[in-house]
Design a binder for these strands. Structure first.
Lengths: 344, 344
DNA sequence: CTGAAAGCGCTTACAG
DNA sequence: CTGAAAGCGCTTACAG
């Protein structure tokens, strides 16, 4: 497998090792193993394959990048890979790549522009990834332009002004509007809204959708019922505590994402309020958890797995010099058991 | 930043580009940028830094691996990165690495031995990672031995017979025993157990812990109350459906993990059974979700974030030729609101 | 203090 | 059909 070296460990098998074992030159080893179109005698080919297998030879990917000028690696920058949302997107990317020529390398930006640029992107670019998928993040449009000049680039869940063909977004505004319409149709009038992270585009769009629906129904938005909850469970809980403490009446809460909704539900329980009997609850995303909440959560489904798959597919097309041809994804309201007509 | 090439894209800036811009040799560029101990004149140093910054130079990590024989990359193999458990471990690894010399590359084995070996490990080894962390997985002990011969290796959440110093495990058996004891102390006698993935070591250990506690209490285990649930939400739901359908009486369910517990809770609800009034429920892992279940789930906490951190730290020590010095992690019973004395 | 040279592990025209 | 040679982008003894 490998030859002993001074510190007891072993160095990796190289093409020269295989060449010696098979009694041919490194050139020939390379031709056989890369499936070159240059013909190789059948018995030579067999001898090479046997030697490579016996020694457990694995071509050094770094050396290949150098000579080929391509790494077959795609860089993916997410913000918080441990969250269900980003995790699903990564799973989608992986799924599309499975069995193909490319593989993904991940790096996390943690919603921190410093870290995203200096940490995640820098790492990926040093590795000379063949293309880049940015999921969310706070890089400026100028930075994106600059990146796109060197590296094929697709952005997911964020805008890339001037490059609609490289954007993979869902219509958050419409999704939020449909969700709010659902509550309205049930008869709710005093609907609270828990915002996502301030300044984050998805967050903004969803709030606009909520306001669209209220306006279309001729209802004023009571600003007392609009609170910040940063897309986090704990923040959803805290915001709901404030909401209840404020004494302002409400019969439903629409949350900017499912995580915040789970926090909201727990806060309601702390005050003896049950979903949906006392208060209706709607989330956004349809994380794997939503379906298994008790009661199952009514929410707006984002096709996260498909977003990941489509991003990978589009990026590979872009690398090949083709138009990325990104599909448009619709959100879908999934009505489950956390919504009902208001009590009174 | 980079020079134009035929296809409109641009090739990356090399050390030669910087050398020309600064009017010195590549050797000098390298010395300045790597912080070599060889002295460099102050004004030369400044000129180099200025040129490198102006051109946006990023050393090619692949070329460096080749010449240095080290990649500063650690390979991490998980099974299902989108799950909360693996996601948290990755977050822990990332957290420890932040700001240091190493970075992580992930690949997923998907609980599939073929894929784990041919896909994930092969990829990582081709990239010549400096070390390997395997989280879970189904690689044989012989395979691990073979890997460890070439590459520093730490395993998390699985055994490595003969190499206890490279194993990072929590005491699943004891954790499960303590959880069962908790139910016993509340007065439960007919306790159902939902197993994890068959053949998986954590799963086995937890079942043993359950049986230990029952035996110590002098209680027989009713095999009708032991069902398979593969660590998945849906499987937990299905198993609980079967349990209820069987008609066998029970007052509590202990689940091999939190995901299965959330499925179990939903199945109970479908039959009009409430947690904890009708049935007590205990999980395992303490995923971020557990605390925000309604009611909050009593569970056995595994310090997943710390596992990830410790694995990264241990691997770096191992690479440096030091003993990995892995800490021992204890599980901890977190009593929340899903458990109560049995009804009758 | 600085540059020319060699070499890391590969691939691929170029000869034969 | 096969091998020797050059080169990808770096780093580091070796000279000066």
């Amino acid at each position: 497998m490998s030859s002993p070296s001074s510190d007891g460990r072993t160095r990796a098998v190289t093409i020269v090792d295989v060449a010696k074992a098979a009694g041919v030159s490194p050139s020939t080893i390379s031709r056989v193993l890369t499936g070159s179109s240059v013909p190789v005698a059948e018995r030579t080919r067999l001898a090479v394959q046997e030697a490579a297998a016996r020694l457990g030879y694995r071509p050094n990917a770094n050396a290949r990048q150098l000579v080929l000028g391509r790494s077959t690696a795609l860089g993916v920058v997410t913000q918080h890979p441990a969250s269900a949302y980003f995790g699903e997107i990564l799973a989608g990317v992986d799924d599309h790549l499975r069995g193909g020529d490319y593989h993904a390398i991940y790096a996390s930006g943690n919603w921190d522009p410093e870290f995203e640029d200096g940490g995640a992107l820098d790492l990926l670019l040093r590795h000379r990834v063949d293309g880049l998928i940015l999921v969310g993040g706070l890089a400026s449009t100028e930075r994106l332009e600059e990146l796109a000049r060197t590296t094929p680039l697709i952005v997911v869940a964020r805008q890339f002004p001037g490059h609609p063909e490289r954007e993979l977004v869902v219509d958050n505004r419409k999704g939020a509007r449909v969700a709010t319409d659902h509550l309205l149709a049930l008869g709710h009038r005093r609907i609270a809204y828990l915002r996502g992270t301030l300044g984050q585009p998805d967050s903004l769009e969803r709030e606009l959708g909520f306001r669209d629906a209220m306006a279309a129904a001729g209802l004023p938005v009571d600003e007392q019922l609009v609170l910040d909850a940063s897309f986090l469970r704990q923040a959803g809980l805290d915001a709901t505590e404030r909401l209840v403490a404020s004494g302002a009446p409400f019969t439903a809460i629409f949350c900017a994402n499912d995580d915040a909704a789970s926090g909201a539900q727990l806060a309601l329980r702390r005050h003896g309020l049950t979903v949906p009997d006392d208060i209706s609850l709607v989330g956004f995303d349809d994380t794997p958890e939503a379906e298994f909440r008790v009661p199952p959560l009514t929410t707006v489904r984002q096709p996260t797995l498909d977003l990941g798959r489509a991003a990978a597919r589009g990026l590979i097309r872009l690398i090949a010099g083709e138009p990325p041809d990104l599909p448009i994804f619709e959100t879908e309201l999934v009505v489950r058991e956390s919504t009902a007509p208001p009590r009174s």
